[in-house]
């Protein structure tokens, strides 16, 4: 029995379409998978806030018919933390690009992980600053060309999965735009997870990254991503030599034991109020 068709436009501000992204841009696929995940969870769109920072990816909330907040560069997680603390029973999703989430927003990123606050962070990692004109980001591969690395990138790149795990996120997964079905599954699991979840999506910006690195169209660049990714199940059977230059995808970490931040705060309120009632 196939899954019932998702009514994508029900979750979208359809009058805003077509969206602003380039033909073949991975962000569109990410947004679609987000909606697929939300639909399968059966969440009421009135109970969802989608929050973003600045950049191409951060334009996503504008298209989503939910409570949407387009904030400042890198700081979406701070706004999201305020929204979640003020409305702990609602669903908060942050969508961010690699530069937004891990360069200017790096500090907010690691601290949201550390708090284990129930927010889902989706990072569309296309290895580049797209909107500002193709400058290198903390995830641009070594040697790659960007507007600000005309002679090749010498900056070491972040591994976002390791970063998220190390900082304390309790659900971490990595997917890629070439497999929307898997992406949707990670989104769903991450959204359902009660704690801070990070899902990195390897994505294509053929316009800014691809054009400078001999992959000027969506198909070529998505193929380049497909060639690199190996699922963690497959990777488990591969030798280190075989894994050289590969990027492992899959659910990378899932811990349901650790306390969630708003739960802890609710307990704190209960404790304080019980004490106050005793005094009165």
């Amino acid at each position: 029995m196939p899954k019932a068709a998702v009514d994508y436009l029900y979750y979208l501000r359809a009058e805003k379409l077509p969206h602003m992204w380039c033909p073949g841009c991975g962000i569109g696929i990410v947004v679609k998978s987000m909606i697929g995940a939300i639909d399968s969870l059966g969440w009421d769109k009135n109970d969802i806030a989608v929050i973003s920072g600045i950049g191409c990816t951060s334009r996503a909330p504008g298209y989503m018919d939910m409570n949407t907040l387009h904030t400042t560069h890198g700081r979406a997680l701070s706004f999201a933390t305020g929204v979640k603390m003020a409305a702990p029973d609602k669903h908060i999703i942050v969508i961010s690009g690699d530069g937004d989430a891990t360069a200017i927003g790096g500090n907010h990123f690691i601290h949201a992980c550390r708090r284990n606050i129930d927010i889902t962070l989706i990072i569309n990692n296309n290895n580049i600053y797209g909107m500002t004109g193709g400058q290198f980001s903390p995830t641009t591969p070594y040697g790659a060309r960007a507007a600000t690395t005309p002679h090749g990138n010498i900056d070491p790149a972040f591994d976002l999965v390791e970063l998220a795990k190390g900082a304390g996120a309790t659900y971490v997964a990595r997917g890629a735009v070439d497999n929307a079905r898997m992406m949707e599954k990670y989104f769903k699991d991450g959204m359902e997870h009660h704690g801070f979840s990070v899902i990195e999506i390897l994505s294509n910006c053929h316009t800014q990254y691809g054009r400078r690195n001999k992959m000027a169209d969506a198909i070529t660049m998505i193929d380049w991503i497909s060639d690199q990714v190996v699922s963690n199940k497959k990777a488990a059977k591969m030798s280190p030599e075989e894994l050289e230059g590969k990027i492992i995808t899959g659910e990378m970490y899932h811990n349901t034991e650790l306390a969630e931040y708003t739960d802890e705060y609710a307990k704190l309120i209960e404790r304080v109020q019980a004490k106050a009632a005793l005094k009165a």
């Binding site: 929050i51 409570n67 907040l69 904030t71 400042t72 700081r75 997680l77 701070s78 706004f79 999201a80 933390t81 305020g82 929204v83 979640k84 603390m85 003020a86 409305a87 500090n107 907010h108 690691i110 601290h111 705060y265």
Partner: peptide
């Protein structure tokens, strides 16, 4: 909530106010 920096603190304030 005590945040990781001043900018984030102000971000939470705006987020909570929107709720």
């Amino acid at each position: 909530i005590q945040m990781e920096d001043e900018i984030a603190a102000m971000g939470t304030v705006i987020g909570a106010s929107l709720v």
